[in-house]
Simulated assay, not measured.
Amino acid sequence: MKEDNRNLKAFTVLFRAYQTIQEATKRDLLQFDLNQTEFSVLEFLYHRGEQPIQVIGKRILIASSSITYVIDKLEQKGYVYRKSCPRDRRVTYVLLTNEGQSLMEKIFPKHEQKINEIFQVLGPQELDTMILSLKKVGKNANEQ
Rank of each mutant, 00 (worst) to 15 (best):
residue 10 A to Q: 07
residue 89 R to I: 01
residue 104 M to L: 12
residue 76 Q to F: 10
residue 65 S to C: 05
residue 119 F to V: 14
residue 92 T to Q: 09
residue 140 N to C: 02
residue 96 L to P: 04
residue 42 L to D: 05
residue 15 F to G: 00
residue 19 Q to W: 05
residue 37 T to H: 04
residue 54 Q to R: 13
residue 88 D to W: 01
residue 86 P to D: 03
residue 132 L to I: 13
residue 26 K to D: 11
residue 101 Q to W: 08
residue 85 C to E: 02
residue 139 K to Q: 05
residue 103 L to I: 00
residue 139 K to A: 07
residue 117 E to W: 09
residue 57 G to I: 11
residue 1 M to S: 11
residue 84 S to R: 12
residue 120 Q to P: 02
residue 68 T to R: 14
residue 13 V to P: 01
residue 17 A to V: 07
residue 14 L to A: 13
residue 105 E to A: 07
residue 133 S to G: 06
residue 99 E to K: 14
residue 37 T to I: 15
residue 103 L to D: 00
residue 60 I to P: 10
residue 58 K to S: 14
residue 126 E to V: 06
residue 125 Q to E: 15
residue 81 Y to T: 14
residue 115 I to N: 04
residue 49 G to I: 03
residue 89 R to E: 02
residue 32 F to P: 04
residue 125 Q to P: 13
residue 57 G to T: 12
residue 70 V to D: 14
residue 8 L to S: 05
residue 53 I to H: 01
residue 138 G to L: 07
residue 94 V to A: 02
residue 122 L to Q: 12
residue 65 S to A: 14
residue 55 V to N: 08
residue 143 E to Y: 00
residue 112 E to H: 11
residue 94 V to E: 00
residue 123 G to Q: 12
residue 49 G to V: 02
residue 90 R to M: 04
residue 58 K to F: 09
residue 28 D to W: 07
residue 12 T to G: 01
residue 138 G to S: 10
residue 35 N to V: 13
residue 95 L to E: 02
residue 92 T to I: 10
residue 76 Q to H: 11
residue 30 L to Y: 12
residue 141 A to C: 00
residue 62 I to A: 00
residue 53 I to L: 05
residue 96 L to S: 01
residue 133 S to Y: 12
residue 43 E to H: 04
residue 67 I to L: 04
residue 60 I to S: 08
residue 25 T to S: 14
residue 41 V to L: 04
residue 91 V to G: 01
